[in-house]
Simulated scan of single mutants.
Amino acid sequence: MKAYRYLTGPDDSAFCHRVTDMLNKGWALHGSPTLTFDPVQGRVICGQAITKDVDGVDYSPEMKLSEL
């Protein structure tokens, strides 16, 4: 099974740590990161798609992708 997640958050070190944590858990970057500006909050928001191949698991909408 190939799992997909899209991580989002403020453009700060915490976001980079979240992505780094997922990479160290076997996830891989998928495409380029995205950036947008939130004028209400006055900050930049990042997004990064990640994927992971998981052997021996069948996809189910009930599964928690963050736990793979």
Rank of each mutant, 00 (worst) to 15 (best):
S60W: 04
D11W: 04
R18Y: 04
E62R: 13
S32H: 00
Y59H: 08
V57K: 09
M63N: 05
V54K: 03
T51V: 14
V57R: 13
D53V: 15
P39S: 15
T51C: 07
S13W: 11
V44T: 10
L7T: 05
S32I: 00
L65K: 10
S60I: 04
L23W: 09
G47P: 08
N24S: 09
M63Q: 15
D21F: 12
K25R: 13
F37M: 11
V19T: 03
L23H: 09
N24K: 09
D38G: 14
T36K: 12
Y6W: 12
A14T: 12
D58I: 07
L68I: 06
D53T: 15
V54E: 05
A28R: 09
Q41P: 00
A3T: 05
S66E: 06
G9F: 03
P39Q: 15
G26Y: 06
V54M: 06
G26E: 03
M63V: 10
F15W: 13
Q48V: 06
S60K: 11
K52G: 08
T20K: 08
S13N: 12
F37L: 14
M63T: 04
D21Y: 13
T51D: 05
Y59N: 02
T51F: 08
D21N: 13
L65F: 07
P39M: 13
M1F: 05
